[in-house]
Design a protein around this nucleic acid. Structure first.
Lengths: 360, 360
DNA sequence: CGATCTTATGTATACGTATTCATCGTTGCA
DNA sequence: TGCAACGATGAATACGTATACATAAGATCG
């Protein structure tokens, strides 16, 4: 193995010298191999291999004005988002793109860090559930980068957007509950200000109203396990329990289930419970939650497709807005037949001194 | 607002022309503002603002030979890794670095895609639980990028490495169990070939042996919920139940708990159960698992520190290898006092037709 | 007040690649 | 045989910035 001097990285010029050709031919060999003669190609490849040459994507990007990098701005917390990031990464890799990730705790951080991210001349940027200043949005579009709003229904029309059909999904869950005879439903949202939250409640309320059922709204305060766990206390103290609790997200629903159980109530025996998102854990035996499964892989694929910027963005065309339907998952938490059959040896939560808390 | 011609992005040259200075001064204004006169600085800043100038990090990287980007190669599945990625991102952002993420499903993908990643001349690369070919490791070090092996004890000595003290952690869990009087312990590993798995078992077996307890090893086959769930069937069919089951990871432990419950066994009543990792869900009331909490934030910080490559890597110094101690979390699953007090209204899992399955 | 030092800025170049244009040798066809 | 067309390659340049070097103007000091 040749010792590449350790200080100076080997460039296409070095390879050219070693192979006895010009730098241009070396470049062609790595971008459009078909235009270079087979025997010279072999010579070049041999030399490149011997020297340990790795093309410099930075220089390439500078010249070609494309980085092949797509950014994603994603909330730092929440099981849902962690899953989505994985799908982003996989889909992008499949397309030969790289993922530059920025996960934020607070919405305030976003506009700050976006400045730094913009310097990298990304090909596209996926904004997941982030509130971006309109002025910044405009500036970003002018740079020719492909923006995509993910799970941010409000953005549709302004920016290309990809989202599950929140309203129809909640409607489907509501119909499921109505079919089970529920007439008094409580909707437990995460954050009332979130557009997804509102859309889901709208779908639920509309459908339930059409069946003559009532649907009150209650806010957990966050899309977290803890928020659901605490909300259970409020629910238990109501004058009268609802027939069903529609929870705005799976993670909050898990907290609700555990919170109810702590107070001696279980689903589906005492009250039916549904979630929204279709997290892997919803299928875990410990919860087995009825929920609306988001086709996360499809959603990610659409987002990546739009963000990869293959389509020319003629700015006067209306931005494409993809809405994908979710699918209902019927779990134990709305299975009336199983109601209330407690069993000895069941998991007990009594006399447990410490209050559990999510996070670390 | 000035219309920047929409085609040609504005460069430092444009700003220089607009401000009546040279390009060099503009560059200085954004890298070393203190060396430029206050009044010219204001002129330049005004011009930059007016034109909507954004420095080009690609060009900067080409010139300065530093990208300020750190890569992370992380398994695509597993709650643990999803958490870790979030910490990486946050810590890097705090240091003014960007995170280029690559998440892999199969170890075979890694060596493939690493080639592509290497082209981006990252400042550092965090390899999480990935098996990299030795030859490639060597080549990567030569490029001057700071490699860090995360949670990959075997790598210590070859490459700078950051990991929790697996052996000591398992030992602590074992001591905890021994203190509760356990003499027959079953260790349920995920994948026996994984170095973390072996280290944890070693710690458990050693400590238990010293107390006269037995510790058999069993392999779940994967670090997943499903694997734990299925392993529960095997455990239940043993001639005699062990006193405790030490599970190699929290996620597998969740599956084990739910699997046991399905067969009518619960922790801590029928058998004690411990996990490893300290996932947020371990604190959820539904599991309340005794486990060893990895200080994920600290680990991430160390990894980011090493990968940021601030320290000069004089190649003859032994690579630093950081080992951080975890902390024991005592949950309900090893709380003997609560043993077997079942309660009416508890969550029932009987007569549940469908088999739950993790993943989607 | 001239010499030296300091400060602020301009000039010029390099980073590593992609691509346009020109060149040159070959082949095909009339 | 002559000319056009073609295929393969080399020479040159541009991408946008950072920085070493040069230079000019004040500032300092004897």
């Amino acid at each position: 193995m040749v010792r590449p001097d350790r200080k100076r990285p080997v460039t296409s010029v070095d390879v050219a010298a070693a192979a006895g050709v010009s730098q241009a031919t070396v470049a062609r060999c790595f971008t459009t191999p078909e235009v270079v003669a087979p025997d010279t190609r072999l010579k070049i490849e041999a030399a490149a291999d011997r020297l340990g040459y790795v093309p410099n994507a930075i220089a390439r990007s500078l010249k070609s004005q494309r980085t092949n990098i797509v950014g994603a701005v994603v909330p730092a917390v929440g099981e849902y988002w962690q899953n989505v990031v994985t799908y982003f990464s996989r889909r992008l890799t499949a397309r030969g793109r790289q993922l530059l990730l920025f996960s934020f705790l607070d919405h305030a951080e976003v506009n700050e860090t976006l400045e730094a991210v913009m310097q990298y001349r990304l090909d596209g940027l996926i904004l997941a559930s982030a509130n971006i200043a309109e002025t910044q949005l405009a500036r970003m579009r002018q740079t020719g980068l492909s923006l995509v709003a993910f799970n941010h229904p409000d953005a549709a029309g302004i920016v290309p957007s990809v989202t599950v059909d929140n309203e129809a999904g909640a409607s489907e869950l509501a119909r499921h509950l109505a079919g089970l005879g529920c007439t008094r439903v409580l909707y437990l949202g995460g954050v009332a200000a979130a557009s997804t939250d509102r859309a889901r409640f709208r779908g639920a309320a509309r459908t339930l109203a059409s069946t003559g059922a009532t649907c009150n709204y209650m806010e957990a305060g966050a899309f977290t396990y803890d928020a659901g766990y605490r909300a259970a206390d409020t629910v238990v103290n109501l004058d009268r329990l609802p027939d069903a609790i529609m929870v705005g997200s799976d993670e909050v629903a898990f907290g609700m289930l555990d919170g109810l159980r702590r107070r001696g109530l279980t689903a589906p025996a005492d009250v039916l419970v549904t979630g929204f998102d279709g997290l892997p854990q919803a299928s875990w035996a410990g919860y087995d939650l009825t929920t609306l499964v988001q086709p996360a892989d499809q959603l990610a694929e659409h987002a990546v497709e739009l963000a990869s910027g293959d389509g020319s963005d003629s700015s006067d065309a209306p931005p494409p807005s993809v809405v994908v339907a979710g699918t209902l998952r019927r779990g134990l938490t709305t299975r009336k037949g199983d109601a209330g059959r407690a069993r000895p040896g069941s998991y007990s939560r009594r006399n447990c001194g410490t209050e559990p808390s999510a996070g670390r």
